[in-house]
Simulated scan of single mutants.
Amino acid sequence: MLSGAIGRVQSPRVIRIGGGVALEVADVLEQLGLSKPLIVTDKNLIILGHVATVTDVLDSAGVAWGVFEDVVEDPTDTCVDAGLNAFGQSDYDCVIGLGGGSPMDTAKAISFMSVNAGHVREYKAPYQIDRCGPPVILIPTTGGTGSELTRWCVITDTERTEKYNLSGLACVATAALIDWTFTTTKPWRITADTAVDSLTHAMEAYVSRRAFAYTDAFALSAMPLISEHVRSACHDPENAIAREALMLAASQAGMAFSNASVALVHGMSRPIGAHFHVAHGLSNAMLLPAVTAFSVNDAPERYATCARVMCWASERDSDEMACARLVEELTRLNDDLKVPCPSELGHAKDDAMFSVMAEQALASGSPQNNPRIPSAAEIVQLYQQIW
């Protein structure tokens, strides 16, 4: 971003961060003048007891509540419709999104679609959804998506097999309670994938054509936290230091990409999720080394800085050497985190499908933020390379 250009920042009104802050949910509702939330979550979080952690606090405070527990992974338009129906069954005055990116994004969509007519696809980016619905309180249970602090959500269209971004003031939470203690129950695969999702957020925000000083600060702080602690969190799920670091990094990276946007990795990742039902963080991990190698020569100083802040290169290394080290270490990180390629998950190469996916990636707008803006043919080649 050029010096003197204007950065525009959107963030929640209330942000509380730290172990145990989820227990302050009733206090936050009172602060905001709210009295009856619909909790949007999934069945697994009920089984794990995380929903009870919140509802017990609400019960103790005499706060009435309801639950919509039917959120699916990579939430769909039909999931949002079901949540809207649940919201309309009582006089709820706010929504609590409790979980990973799927429940949080669903909560956002339920809120803004309760006051905006039509189908959710009518509001996909670059449309800006600024007519806000009821307040949204987000409580993440994974250290990855950063949705609790972003102005984005992602919904899958079941009719068109398309995963699209939604953006605007209506996608910004009213409050975020960021409590790392929820993440200790997460298994290796989710821990690894959500951490690399955060790393991708931070790196893409930093190299984005829309980056500026405010977002740079968050991105540069998040990257070393992830690179230093992700392996420890995977090998030792109860490691409090690692878990806290990854949750903080996820939020910092969320602030960075929410206001600087993501780039080519995310543009290519969404079609993988839509067509092959690969988890978002995992598809990002599959793509990150190859897309970085594709892009480094168009922003060598920026990518070299990424390598240096993660201690993968030194100040004595040339930018060229640092960029090479960055690609090497991202590849090594994938190996250590046991990231499979799509074919190892049973998904066969399909050049015709890759062409469709390339067009969907470009239509999302994210690749246009990349240092090297790809053609559709180059995106197809990248899909072939990582497959």
Rank of each mutant, 00 (worst) to 15 (best):
D193C: 15
T194L: 05
T194F: 05
A195W: 00
V196Y: 10
D197R: 10
D197N: 13
S198T: 15
S198C: 06
L199W: 02
L199T: 01
L199R: 08
T200W: 04
H201D: 01
M203K: 10
M203Y: 07
E204P: 02
A205K: 06
A205Y: 04
A205R: 07
A205S: 15
Y206H: 09
V207S: 09
S208Q: 05
R209E: 05
R210E: 13
A211R: 11
F212D: 08
A213F: 06
A213V: 11
D216Q: 15
A217C: 13
F218Q: 10
F218P: 03
F218L: 05
L220A: 12
S221R: 12
A222L: 04
A222E: 01
M223P: 00
P224F: 10
L225R: 04
I226C: 00
S227Y: 01
S227D: 00
E228T: 13
H229Y: 13
V230H: 00
S232D: 07
A233R: 00
C234H: 04
C234A: 09
H235I: 07
H235Y: 08
H235M: 14
D236Q: 08
E238A: 15
E238K: 14
A240N: 10
I241A: 14
A242F: 00
E244L: 02
E244Y: 04
A245D: 02
L246F: 03
